[in-house]
Design a protein around this nucleic acid. Structure first.
Lengths: 111, 111
DNA sequence: TAACTATGTCGTATGTTTGCGTTATACTAC
DNA sequence: GTAGTATAACGCAAACATACGACATAGTTA
């Protein structure tokens, strides 16, 4: 980790940045939207709906899973991915708090 | 752009991802918080307040400026950076819409 | 003019992300 | 057992991000 000083910032800043990073690729945004809308959310279906290979989609799913935003349950041959609503709510609130705090405390700078 | 298929997603997905990318580094999060709180938002002051070199801070400022979230006005020898409230509000709304739409349309998957 | 100060740009080193082909794993059906 | 299907793991190449020192630019002051 020689070339990232991320750890020298405070926890809120790190948390916001990490959440934002998960959302910083359109594929992951699209996957979340897809999961929210579709009932049968199988990994293969997701790659069919996206302009990416199955391998790449699987990697993005893994990142969303690591962040806790989704969860996957093995159901025989297929895997059912769903949004982890509890974690997703928490993430939404963290980001929202950060954005709203900036808006409200933005003292009209003297420029 | 051989190794990024970002352009093959729809505009909302690209917009959300792009905004998230700007917020995906703690330094930029910290810069925004600093700008919101401090009146005299001079470039030198910002780099003093962060555990990064002046060069690196300057680059992060440039990215925030490219995204339109901040604006900088030259005032003689110093440069005064401020949050662009109009753009920042729009960004907050875009991200908020995306997150809330997912929450509300998240049909409890049959797992 | 020259010296000083504040800021931005360039080049470079290193680390991380993206994307996919190939291979491995695991379950189902026969 | 074998054949077929669905998914994950491995490994590689290209692109991008992070961080900084050194140089360039532009205003200030003497």
């Amino acid at each position: 980790m020689a070339y990232t000083k991320s750890t020298e910032f405070n926890l809120e800043q790190q948390e916001v940045a990490q959440l934002a990073k998960v959302l910083s690729h359109p594929a992951r945004v699209a996957i979340l939207q897809h999961l929210a809308q579709v009932k049968t959310c199988i990994s293969g279906d997701i790659s069919n709906a996206l302009p990416l290979s199955r391998t790449t989609v699987s990697q993005h799913l893994q990142e969303l899973k690591n962040a806790g935003l989704i969860q996957g349950e093995i159901d025989g041959l297929t895997v059912c991915y769903c949004i982890n609503q509890e974690k997703f709510d928490a993430a939404t609130q963290s980001l929202g708090n950060f954005l709203n705090n900036i808006q409200s405390s933005c003292s009209s700078c003297g420029c």
